[in-house]
Every structure is written in C-alpha cells, then in structure tokens.
Amino acid sequence: MADKDLLAGDLGETRQFATFHVGDLFFGIEAIRVQEVIRHQEMTPIPLAPPAIQGLINLRGQIVTAVDTRRMLALPPPAVGKRPMNIIIKAEDGAVSLLVDEIGDVLEVPLNSFAPVPDNVPAPQRDLVAGVYKLRHQLMLALDSERLLENACH
C-alpha cells in the first residue's frame, strides 16, 4: 500500500499499455487485454467475409480471426512485402488477432494524462479511439478494441 502511494505521488495512478504502430499512428491497448504478440503468420483468406476480416491463422491449434487494422482505420494497404505483426487480444468469444505494422514497448501510462480525442482526428479513426494519452514525447491513441471488433464484422 505504502509503495503504491509513493508511486502515485509521482505519476498518479498508471496503467500498462501495449503499444504498436499502424501507418503513422501510435496506438496503445490495455496490456491486460493482450494475450500475446506474434510475428507474421501464414493466413488463410475467407472468401465472402467482411473486407476487414483478413483471414484465419493457426495459433497453436486454435483458429484465430485476423482483423486488418489498417482497413479499419481507412489507411492504405501496407507497402508490398511488408508483413504485418499479430497482436492477439482476448475477445469475449476467444482470441482475435489485430494486424499491425510494428510492435512498440509496453508502457506504464499515467491515467491523468488522458484527454478526449482531438477534433481533427479523421472520422474512421476517431470512431475507434477511446481517447488520447499525452506522453512525454508523443501522443498515444487508446484503441477501443471492442469497437474495432464490432465494426470489423460489418
């Protein structure tokens, strides 16, 4: 208890975020929701599936749906030959993979640095971002993963 108070005196309450890059955007997702991060996996496309569902991957015998995060954010497809990474997140009905460009560090983010989404963020992105954390060097967009998964299926 005492330790926590000491820490709080410094930063206020903090939370761990797993960070990643999609295009020029820097995102964070609560580390507690992330199951694991894996490198590029071979993917099986699903004909007729919603466009944002890029395919299925085999995660140690478990079949995981991969969501094209770029498409969800209305970003152009990645450069040819660039293989996305998988952030496996825990969803209500099993694991789902978010395909992202690069994986960043896990950051301890002070909750009091939170701010609502700035108005100049484009609409498709604003819809998927819960808010912004003002870190020392940059802004981290907090990804609303529930929303993302929900939207991906339409």
């Binding site: 699903i46 007729l48 599936a49 569902i53 299925l56 079949i63 995981v64 749906t65 969803a91 209500e92 009905d93 099993g94 789902v96 998964l149 991906a152 299926c153």
Partner: peptide, 9 residues
C-alpha cells in the same frame, strides 16, 4: 468452429 464474428457466413 469459426469465431462468432464469422457465424453469419
């Protein structure tokens, strides 16, 4: 099974 997300297919 496919995830709930793909049940509609």
């Amino acid at each position: 099974p496919l995830g709930k997300r793909l049940k509609g297919l």
